[in-house]
């Protein structure tokens, strides 16, 4: 039996799963319907994260391995960055955007991931 998700997408799945099982996902994002793409440049491929009114889905995008491919993906918001910047939190990401080490098309993804990661 193959696992449904592994590694980085599974890490992110855990964060959302924990919010869902405790009923917090619905509370934090009651009406949110969004498709976000996150690419950790040192751990490709990218992943599609869908949040839909208290539920969520994560899917690896096997063909999206480089940040230049992100403009071709159908989504509401995307971001590509190295893992250490994601770990480093908002300040490090903002610095990375200023230094052009982070590719982002709008800040919605940052806001949503920030909320997800800040839950205890």
């Amino acid at each position: 039996m193959c696992p449904m998700l592994e590694d980085i997408p599974a890490f992110l799945y855990i964060l959302l799963w924990e919010l869902k099982i405790y009923g917090k996902l619905e509370k934090i994002f009651p009406d949110l319907q969004i498709k976000m793409v996150l690419l950790l440049t040192d751990f490709p491929p990218a992943m599609l994260i869908q949040i839909d009114k208290g539920d969520f889905k994560i899917e690896p995008l096997e063909d999206i391995k480089d940040s230049k491919d992100l403009d071709n993906v159908e989504c509401d918001t995307y971001m590509a960055l190295p893992i250490e910047m994601l770990y480093g939190g908002a300040d490090k990401i903002l610095q990375g955007i200023a230094d052009k080490k982070v590719k982002i098309n709008n800040y919605k993804i940052l806001e949503i991931l920030g909320k997800i990661m800040s839950v205890r």
């Binding site: 696992p3 449904m4 592994e6 590694d7 599974a10 890490f11 799945y13 799963w17």
Partner: peptide
């Protein structure tokens, strides 16, 4: 260290 999500939807690491 492996992180995965099983078919049941329950994660495990």
């Amino acid at each position: 260290f492996k992180v995965l999500v099983r078919d049941s939807g329950i994660p495990h690491f």
